[in-house]
Simulated scan of single mutants.
Amino acid sequence: MSTSKPAWSERELPAFFKRWRTEWKDEELSPSNYLDYEGGLRFVLAAAWLFCPETVEYRGCVFLKENFSQDVVDNWFTTLGHDRERIEAVVNQVRLWDVFLNASRTDDEQLGEELPQLALALGECWQGVLSARYPDREITVEVGDEEDGSYGPAVTFRTSPAVSDFD
């Protein structure tokens, strides 16, 4: 798996959006306009949980609440020898195809090709949210993809105590 820190610096508009804008014959329309025209408020409200996830602290670690199970985490502590950063990275991993199980991978829209951009956006959001939420920790967010692209991108994070310039 290849990984990188999230950096979504060169945004490309999704193909479905470009087609929609062309159909409306208005190249000035923005993604915000799309959300308004297509009644996207429900989807954006639900997506808030993805982009600004709830977290829990347990055994000196930070976990996504949605992924957290005390028994599973305790098993990882045994398996990984109390390596907190590795345990967090494993438990906090979100594979985007697991989030979008009902989305077609073969449709004409080719939305699967847009997932790497979504993963980068998600990673940047997590970096900011978690850094603000846990200022006493160094947050490392990683965005990765299978080498062969077979299962799409994943996003995860791990924490460690913040390093002070005065130590």
Rank of each mutant, 00 (worst) to 15 (best):
K18D: 10
W20P: 01
S131W: 07
T79R: 11
S131E: 13
A47R: 04
Q70L: 03
R21C: 02
A119Q: 01
W20R: 01
W24L: 09
P53D: 01
F63A: 05
W49S: 12
Q110R: 14
N92H: 04
L96K: 01
A121I: 03
S150G: 15
Q117E: 11
C61V: 04
E142H: 12
F100L: 12
D167E: 14
R105Q: 13
P161E: 15
V143I: 10
F17K: 02
Y151S: 08
S30H: 04
F157L: 11
T78S: 06
G152F: 05
D83I: 08
A7P: 03
L118I: 03
Y37T: 04
E124I: 08
I87P: 00
F77G: 04
S164D: 11
L115M: 13
W126P: 03
K18T: 12
T140D: 11
G39T: 05
W8P: 04
I87Q: 00
K65S: 12
K65Y: 09
V129G: 03
W8F: 15
V99Y: 00
L96N: 02
F166D: 13
G144Y: 05
R21Q: 04
L101F: 13
D26V: 09
L13Q: 07
E114M: 11
S2I: 15
E38N: 06
R21F: 00
L13W: 06
G152M: 05
A119F: 00
R137G: 01
E27Y: 00
L41D: 07
P161F: 12
S30I: 03
W49H: 12
G144V: 06
S2Q: 12
E10V: 14
Y58G: 03
W49E: 14
H82M: 09
G144P: 07
I87W: 00
T3S: 09
Q110D: 15
E27V: 02
N75Q: 13
D26P: 11
P53F: 01
Y151W: 13
Q127D: 06
N67R: 06
P53C: 02
A154D: 06
D36F: 07
E147S: 05
D36E: 07
D107W: 14
T79F: 13
P135I: 08
P31C: 12
D167K: 09
V90A: 11
H82L: 10
W97D: 10
E10L: 10
T22S: 15
T55M: 02
V155S: 02
T3R: 07
H82S: 13
T79N: 09
A47P: 02
R137C: 06
W76R: 13
K25R: 13
A47V: 01
N33D: 12
D107L: 08
Y37G: 03
E138A: 15
V44P: 01
F166E: 11
S69C: 07
A47Q: 05
L29K: 15
R59E: 00
L35Y: 09
R42P: 02
W24I: 07
P116V: 01
L122S: 00
E10M: 09
D148F: 11
D83P: 06
Y37C: 03
L13T: 09
T79Y: 14
P161S: 14
L111K: 08
F43C: 03
E138T: 15
T140Q: 12
D108N: 15
D165G: 08
C125I: 03
G60P: 02
S164K: 08
L13I: 07
S32T: 07
D136G: 10
V90H: 06
F63M: 05
T156N: 06
N67M: 04
T79C: 07
R84P: 03
M1Y: 09
D107T: 13
E38C: 08
D136V: 05
P161N: 12
